[in-house]
């Protein structure tokens, strides 16, 4: 029964455990990396600082948080106290990594302790945690665990551990229908289910039980940084295509 059966105090709030399925209490004694907006309450003496500001004093931070495109979305919580974290009423779970690595969708990662190192995954929108420590992740509905070989819907995929990074799998019928247009360079005809992530090897895959995701502000920064490698002419082509697409969707909205 999910009832209000307890009024928490700084002393009775759980130590690194769930307050309820949708909120988690971290017993802070040192530093944690916290996703902006995840904090809903805290007791104690805790400071929150931008990663860049914190790193200028504590050099180790730059080594632990190795992802320039996500730096703006994270802060360092430092001090002693109880920190309550939540995300849109989604399920919040904690996971322990013991001298291992796990890759997770950046928008579902809420917090991790300073024993873990964050790196940007090769797969866009995902980050990899390496080392030994605890992290918190949110999911819309309970987390489902699967083992490869397995194909996952990109929206439902939360992350994976131990197995190699996935490859794209395109539905055969979709491929046949789109080979011509692909050859002409026209992509973007999607029914939503023709693309999956294909996992092989040994490991664990984490899925959420819905396809609800949060828009990732880092995606734009990622694409922008990647577009920087294009020569000027290709940049122009890209700009024209994007402009055409925006105009088209605006016209559709008007109708």
């Amino acid at each position: 029964m999910l009832q209000l059966d307890q009024t928490w105090t700084a002393a009775t709030l759980p130590e690194n455990d769930n307050v309820n399925p949708y909120a988690f209490s971290v017993a802070l004694n040192g530093s944690w990396f916290i996703s902006k907006g995840a904090m809903i309450a805290y007791y104690g003496r805790i400071t929150f600082e931008a990663i860049a500001a914190f790193a200028s004093r504590e050099a180790w931070v730059a080594a632990q948080f190795s992802s320039p495109i996500y730096v703006q979305d994270w802060v360092v919580a430092n001090g002693q106290g109880k920190l309550v974290l939540a995300d849109r009423g989604f399920d919040v779970n904690s996971y322990d990594i013991d001298a291992g690595n796990l890759t997770i969708k950046a928008t579902n990662l809420l917090a991790f302790d300073a024993g873990l190192e964050l790196k940007q995954s090769i797969v866009p929108g995902f980050v990899t945690l390496i080392g030994t420590g605890k992290f918190l992740a949110s999911s819309n509905g309970p987390v489902i665990f699967k083992e490869p070989p397995f194909r996952a819907d990109p929206e439902a995929l939360l992350g994976w551990a131990d197995c190699p990074a996935p490859s794209h799998h395109h539905d055969a019928a979709w491929m046949a229908a789109n080979l011509m247009s692909a050859a002409q360079g026209i992509f973007g005809r999607t029914s939503g289910e023709e693309r999956q992530f294909d996992f092989t090897g040994a490991g664990v895959i984490l899925l959420q039980s819905s396809e609800m995701t949060r828009s990732d502000p880092a995606t734009l920064r990622l694409i922008e940084s990647q577009a920087a490698v294009l020569p000027v002419q290709q940049k122009q082509t890209l700009a024209q295509r994007l402009t055409a697409e925006v105009q088209q969707s605006q016209q559709q909205q008007r109708r």
Partner: peptide
């Protein structure tokens, strides 16, 4: 989501 009650007692 389920309500969380936090007590304030001098702190």
């Amino acid at each position: 989501g389920p309500m969380i009650a936090l007590s304030v007692a001098g702190d």
